[in-house]
Each structure stands twice: as structure tokens, then as C-alpha cells.
Design a binder for these strands. Sequence first.
DNA 1: TATTATCCTACCAAATAAGTAGAGTATATA
DNA 2: TATATACTCTACTTATTTGGTAGGATAATA
Lengths: 134, 134
Amino acid sequence: MLSNKAKYALRALGYLAAKYPHGPVQIAEIAEQKKIPLKFLENILLELRKAEIVASKKGKGGGYFFDKDPKQVSVASVIRTIDGPISMLPCVSLYFYKKCDDCDEINCSLNKVFIDVRDATIKVLEKKSIRDLI
Amino acid sequence: MLSNKAKYALRALGYLAAKYPHGPVQIAEIAEQKKIPLKFLENILLELRKAEIVASKKGKGGGYFFDKDPKQVSVASVIRTIDGPISMLPCVSLYFYKKCDDCDEINCSLNKVFIDVRDATIKVLEKKSIRDLI
DNA sequence: TATTATCCTACCAAATAAGTAGAGTATATA
DNA sequence: TATATACTCTACTTATTTGGTAGGATAATA
């Protein structure tokens, strides 16, 4: 399951994508429109900016905005930024790989099964962009 | 991510599947062979039995066993039993559906995206059986 | 220099995950 | 029928993660 945080992130990005390519949108506006707790959204957008998914501008007239076409940003990349791995096992994760201490991967049957699951899931999530969320 | 519990469940079932169609295997044997905490495994196997994924026999010579071909048991059904929904959003879950209070589903773009993800993921997980874990 | 709006660290409460404890119940077999 | 065996069941504990909040720092604008 997606965390609430990731769901908020995707909703907020959908809102920003709808404004693209027009100027910064304030956190407060997004929070109100999308019914997301303001301070929580601050944290989320900060993470997204650090991951270079969105850009921001401080001070009056500032806010958050896409500095590239939201079509170029995959849903997969947002989930990875907020929730971490998409795979169902650490030992099959492409971006967050971690060895299982109870499987050797070469002979592990779980590993093989969940590589197939990962590939099927990621194929869809990489193809979907934030533009699809408008 | 799969919970540890679900991972244990799949490993234990793989062990039982390898024994199929031969007699009951004791929890203690599975726990030792698969390095799963004994008491935890007790709980897990109990859940699996209640879901009619495996059968059990009490007393001397008792234990757990498959009473049907493990080929007939999907990995999806085990995950659902132990971890619950496979989908990434409650509002697209087939077995654990729950309305999102912030989306109306007809117009919700998240909903549409994650239906596609669900279909791709489940297609693989329904096809994989416990027999593939031997 | 006042105002606006993001930035950043730390904190907190509730829920979930992971595992443990111990007594109860059914079954085989001597 | 006594006894040992092995699952059954409920409740509990502890650690981690989730879902936020609080409040001051920083930067841009006018």
C-alpha cells in the first residue's frame, strides 16, 4: 500500500502539473485545494524538491512549480522518493537493493518470483507520468 | 514491501510443498530448517490453516501439510491472507476494497493509474503458485 | 526593513509489525 | 486410560513506522 504521504505527494504534484508552465503556486493554496495538512505538505514538497522533482522560489510571489514538463516525471520516481522501494522484497529492488540474510538469490525461489512481479509493476509505474494525474 | 511474516509464510509453504503429498510436517522442523522463530511460525501456520491454505493434524505424528496440490495455491492468496491487500490503494483493491474519502473514483486520476498497476501485479502473482517456491 | 513564503530540525502520538508467553485441546499409542 | 506429543488460541510486549505538529531560520521582494 502507498503511504498517505505518497498519496498526498501525487495529488499535490497533479495540482502543480495542471498549472504548468505557469508561475509558482503557494503551499497554502495546494493544501487548501487538495485538503492536505499544511505543515505535512511543507515536508513533502521539500523532499520532492530535494529529489529535483519540483522547483521552488522563496519570498513574496514564491511557491512551488515544475521546472520541466510533468510528462517527464514518472509516478514511479515520486513513489521511490517518498515511500522508497516499489519492489516487494529488498533483494529484488533496483534502487534500494539490500541482500536478504536468509536467501542466496541464485537458488532462492522467492527472489525469482518477485523479480517477475517487480518487472510487471514497474513497467506500468515508469510509463505513467504526473501529467496522467491532471 | 512484503512483511517479514508473509516472507516466513511463503518459505514455510515452500518447505511443505516440497514434501507434498507426504504426511504432516511438524512446526518445529519447519522452523529449524527455514530459520523462522518457532512461536511466530505457529501463529502464521494457524492463519494459513484458517484460510484453508494448508491443513493440520494434532497429536503425535501430527503437523501441517497440503491437502491439495500446492500448484493450486497462488502466491497472491498467501499474501492476501497474511498481509492483506496487494493493491497500492484501498479504492482499487479487489478483496479489501475501501472507498477513499478524498476521491470519487469516477474522476480520480490516481484511481485509474493504480488500477493498471494492480492488474499488472496481480496477473503475475495469481499465476505463481507455491509449487514455484520449491 | 517589513513582509512574505519556503527551509529545516526536532518532536510527538497512534498504529502496525514482529515476536513471546503460557495455558488449553485433541490425538496416538502403550 | 494415562501419558506424551503437537497443534490451538488469546493476550501481551517491544520496536519501528506513519502521520502528523511546532517553531524558528533563511531568503526574496517591495
